[in-house]
Design a binder for these strands. Structure first.
Lengths: 210, 210
DNA sequence: CTGTCAATTGACACTGTGTCAAGCTGGAAG
DNA sequence: CTTCCAGCTTGACACAGTGTCAATTGACAG
């Protein structure tokens, strides 16, 4: 709610983010957004050509605020593939809850709105590149299972990290965020490395609320 | 397209299914549905109170036609937990592409329509029960990893089998259906059994188009 | 012929998006 | 001080889509 002293376009984005992160998050209408920003409906159109554009701009604004690049730094400087995978998966898993409100809105639009779909695809491509980099590091170390080429490993990791999986496990199944993160990390390791040993140990993780 | 000689309500459902399974599947409007069924828009309302109800009824109609219960029979008669898991996962994986058109529509509605959400939740609960049964069979055999209680194993399997994962891997990543099915099956086995041995072998699967 | 049922036609209210035109206002520039 | 103008407001409109209603048609059974 740092929405008092900014200029109108920014205030609109901040209000939109607040709406999207609200608990019973319906897709806000233009009127909702305008009201939340303390501005007339037309004022919103004065700055953003359509609702989709507002939502996409809000996403970008949030990206700026959250600074994912910094969060990924440990992953890029990891000593080996396994550590890189660990760091990347952990960083992403902890990023998801922060962007979920916004992501849910964009995902909802993708079924009807081509522009939203394009914006979403870009985001997913970015994630995919991170996955590919982690997989490439594993490949360099030779720790990728023999049967798994890099493309397939990247696809699998990307699918594993999907926001829908986060939704299913934490929202629908009620998992703690920490349990989600540790389990996904363990599955990534188990699936993408020929780590014969303590698969079982790796999948161990805090029971309900530890 | 067996839509010539049925009664109107059925013809509406069949036309709706055809629209949902069409390649560039947008969410059909009531006019679309009426036109496809060769009937006036109001005639649709004469049989179904809302668009959501048409879609849900179409889902149920398709369920009847596809007879998932029969497809799951091998899973129920499996000799041990591992075989049951295999059979269940395989049956579900091969079921997903058949229901995807319909599922996508219902999923799209869940964000705005409570009734659609309820219908979807029921479907997901059914899937979850199948997962729980397979997991229970593993538990009876004692082949569940020590660190994994039945509830967690069920959650994980359920998430793994989600339609979104199928979409991501086959639609977005372009995997062949067979590759999808074999990989998911292997991941399920690797994650849910303390199968120390040939994890790598299990994850092997046909390269691109074999 | 008469009822009845299914379907049709055409109208309407409502919500939401996006567009347009005219008016208001406060502050900077002359 | 006046003028100007950018930013915002108000209020109207067209359009698409949902869902409702009423009057009408047409066929078929009794």
């Amino acid at each position: 709610m740092s929405s008092a002293n900014s200029d109108t376009p920014t205030r609109i984005l901040e209000s939109t983010l607040a709406l999207l992160e609200a608990p019973g998050g319906k897709l806000p209408t233009m009127s909702d957004i305008a009201k939340a920003a303390g501005v007339s409906r037309q004022a919103v159109y004065l700055h953003y050509p359509s609702r989709t554009d507002v939502l996409i701009a809000a996403t970008r604004y949030q990206d700026q605020m959250l600074d994912m690049d910094t969060a990924l730094a440990p992953s890029r400087t990891a000593a080996n593939g396994r550590e890189r995978l660990d760091a990347f998966v952990t960083a992403w898993c902890n990023h998801v809850p922060k962007i979920h409100g916004v992501a849910r809105a964009i995902m909802a639009l993708t079924s009807t709105d081509a522009e939203a779909k394009a914006a979403w695809d870009i985001r997913m491509t970015d994630l995919r590149e991170g996955c590919a980099a982690a997989v490439a590091a594993l490949a360099r170390d030779g720790t990728l299972p023999d049967s798994m080429d890099q493309a397939k490993a990247t696809d699998l990791l990307w699918a594993l990290l999907s926001i829908r999986n986060w939704e299913n496990l934490t929202q629908t199944c009620g998992w703690e965020q920490s349990r989600y993160a540790m389990t996904i990390r363990a599955m990534a390791v188990a699936t993408l490395t020929q780590d014969t040993g303590p698969l079982t140990d790796a999948l161990a993780c805090p029971e309900p609320p530890a």
